[in-house]
Design a protein around this nucleic acid. Structure first.
Lengths: 187, 187
DNA sequence: TTTATTTATTGACTGAAGTCAATGACGTTC
DNA sequence: GAACGTCATTGACTTCAGTCAATAAATAAA
């Protein structure tokens, strides 16, 4: 649980009282490989911090899985689209291997926002960070070729390449597995 | 200035005192057609609310203008990438016609965040909204063909089609002007 | 170890956007 | 009204990812 606090402290300094209030809301949970945290159509009521493990987001479009995101040990994740608006999710969120996480509910988080300006600030900084991440990802689709996107992924996140099968990476890059295979050959 | 308050009130209810503090920070400015609010390499130190007018974001990649966003009367805009991180912008932000705006500086906004939890909350809600917008736009690139993106634009934002030359729309959709012309012909 | 099953690679072909170049439509200016 | 610049359209050709199908490699199961 200390690792969650360390993570939070990267955004705001918390007093012991604040942290106690936060920790109080956390709920531990384990996921088996392939187990789903969220299904399409469900409302995402929790955010989670990954103590150990890996998850992916994907949606199904005309029978094909399209992967949109990966998360690993030390990351914080939620389907924000659904979480923020409390509307049905478009995604499946699945553990790629057995994983350990701490959950916090939307309800509890909202309560923390309202009772502690410091957590309201955490929420803002978090949303800002989300936006920046999203922005970067959009940019790679707007300004880079698939080959450029792959090259960038290799640089920034080569660990991901070992952990995740290639057809999921292809999907994440917005190309077919065959195409990624050819891109790799070209390099 | 009332219109700015109306806009803010969509996110949080403000007391008269809070609003006075906010209004105090606003600065009126007019832009001529084609005038730049921001240049590549500059740090974006302001956000602005458009009372009347239209703006576009673009960047220059190997000599080509790539348009990434449009904003119109009643919209609020900033180069958040630069504004939030106070790092040099990658974009030009240009008035598409003569425009009237209210500016608020990063410094003043930060001050409001710190002094009024209500504005901190505004900041959070705003960042969340930004994220959702970004997310939607990314989705259109991931799951739609150029033709689909154009069709969606026609539905959602047909006003934009009248206000903006077609080659900018093409760029915004991620295709060449020739391609957009052919897409329009197909429909 | 052998057999299945999943994942990755390769080849031949298709399709849609890009490129280059020419023409047409429109508005502005002199 | 003629001449210019800007923007939109059209045509011929190229390029690169998608598709379909076959094979090979790697994993998991028996």
């Amino acid at each position: 649980m200390q690792e969650v606090r360390t993570f939070v402290e990267k955004f705001v300094k918390t007093s012991d009282e604040e942290w106690a209030a936060f920790r109080n809301k956390l709920q531990f949970k384990e996921f088996d490989k392939d187990e789903l945290f969220l299904k399409e159509g469900e409302v995402c009521k929790h955010a989670l911090f990954i103590t150990e493990g890996a998850f992916r987001f994907y949606k199904i479009v005309d029978g094909n899985e399209l992967v949109t995101a990966f998360f690993f040990t030390g990351d914080y994740l939620s389907d924000y689209q659904s979480f923020l608006t409390q509307s049905p999710s478009n995604y499946y969120v699945q553990a790629l291997r057995s994983s350990k996480v701490y959950l916090i509910s939307k309800k509890d988080l909202t309560e923390l926002y309202n009772n502690y300006p410091n957590f309201e600030k955490l929420g803002r900084l978090f949303a800002e960070r989300l936006f920046l991440t999203m922005n970067r990802r959009l940019d790679t689709f707007l300004y880079e070729t698939p080959e450029g996107r792959y090259a960038e992924l290799v640089n920034r996140n080569s660990k991901l390449l070992q952990e995740v099968p290639q057809y999921m990476i292809a999907s994440y890059l917005g190309v077919k597995p065959e195409t990624l295979s050819r891109i790799r050959k070209r390099i």
